[in-house]
Write a protein that binds this DNA or RNA. Structure first.
Lengths: 209, 209
DNA sequence: GTTCTCTGTAGGAATTGCCCTACACGGATG
DNA sequence: CATCCGTGTAGGGCAATTCCTACAGAGAAC
């Protein structure tokens, strides 16, 4: 019998998952938590083989909880369950010690498979996602992406984030708009984004504006 | 027996909800959909009393689907199920014809209650949320600028903030790109902004993304 | 009931930006 | 050295977007 602890903040989703797991005769939900603190507290007196973990929880979020779970003695395997099938997020989760990563989009049967896999000491990654990770992420996540930008690229980046368009920047820097366009394309590639909207989000999230 | 159709894009969440509903003897899931198109298609040959609708779905999203469901003859009651307990979002959903609004945070038992309530022709709003709606609507002497936007404008706004370009949106909404461009120009004028970057900033600052 | 304004829709002309390509230069790699 | 890679610079051509304009329907205003 594989004992599972479910950590997920949305009650209804959590209940749903418990029901799903309940369908398998070899799996059993032995505890639950709706935030990181509860989870860590729960693990102090509940023994289990697998923690099913939503990364986006309030307070101590899933990502932050992972290393702390791993620091316990005889830690359970961690299977991350995410709404977002972001390759970036998956890479970070695996890096800090998750044994698997599944998305809420995937087939429910796969979730059960994933739980069994990680309980047995193995790893599991959503197949679609694995594909994308290989392509998108060089699996080299460490320093902020924008540290890869050259001087010129960075200054174009800042101006774009502040609302300037390609022509404005060309004027400000006394360059051809074609040049700015090239810098823009290159910097977006480096930041792994495909739209100006994402650029602005990136800038705001990293407090670069 | 109350027949329910579940529209929710994340497979695992959808399955979970089906399990939950299955626990009640007077409720029965008679269909499901993972996007707005499937939902509308499904309603053409499936009869049901209640549609359980996630607002954040790809393609035709939940909010847009509501008026189209209401336009059917003998339409089912619509119970919106949302991740976000935003008062703003709830207000919009109710305005376009939803009979209830529950969040995934709420107690699963309440979900079943809510389904029964709307099936009987009543209304249901998550109690916490109702509280906040009264306060936020009542206490904000200066309504946000984006409350001036029309439905169409707002949906174009959201998509732009999420990184879609004019053509993407035109396709999603099956309109000319010129039309989208006009909506974009008008909404930007209303929001008093002049660039896409400012639009994204606005959206983030007001937690609309 | 006529007029006004807002909304949703879109066409043609004009602008802007993107994609692909190119090239020179400097530093790293071998 | 010879070569490769990253950077800064741009052009040509094509696609996306805006600008200006228009029109119809729905309510509001008077």
């Amino acid at each position: 019998m594989i004992r599972v602890l479910v950590a997920e903040d949305h009650t209804i989703v959590r209940e749903g998952i418990k029901q799903l797991i309940g369908l398998a005769k070899d799996l059993q939900v032995v505890g639950e938590a709706s935030n990181g603190e509860q989870l860590l507290e729960g693990l102090r007196h509940i023994e289990c083989e697998v923690v099913l973990l939503d990364i986006s929880m309030p307070g101590v979020n899933g990502l932050e909880a992972i290393p702390r779970i791993r620091a316990l003695n005889n830690p359970p395997a961690i299977l991350v369950l995410s709404m977002h099938d972001e390759a970036q997020m998956a890479a970070r989760a695996l890096k800090v010690g998750a044994a698997g990563y599944a998305t809420k989009d995937s087939d429910p049967a796969l979730l059960l498979t994933a739980i069994r896999r990680v309980a047995a000491g193995g790893r599991y990654i959503d197949p679609d996602l694995a594909d994308r990770m290989v392509f998108e992420v060089g699996l080299t996540d460490s320093r902020p992406l924008h540290s890869l930008l050259s001087e010129r690229e960075f200054s174009v980046f800042e101006r774009l984030a502040q609302g300037a368009n390609v022509n404005d920047i060309a004027q400000q820097l006394a360059l051809s708009s074609k040049t700015i366009s090239t810098h823009k394309a290159r910097l977006m590639q480096k930041l792994n984004i495909t739209s100006l909207a994402e650029l602005v989000k990136y800038a705001m999230e990293h407090k670069l504006v």
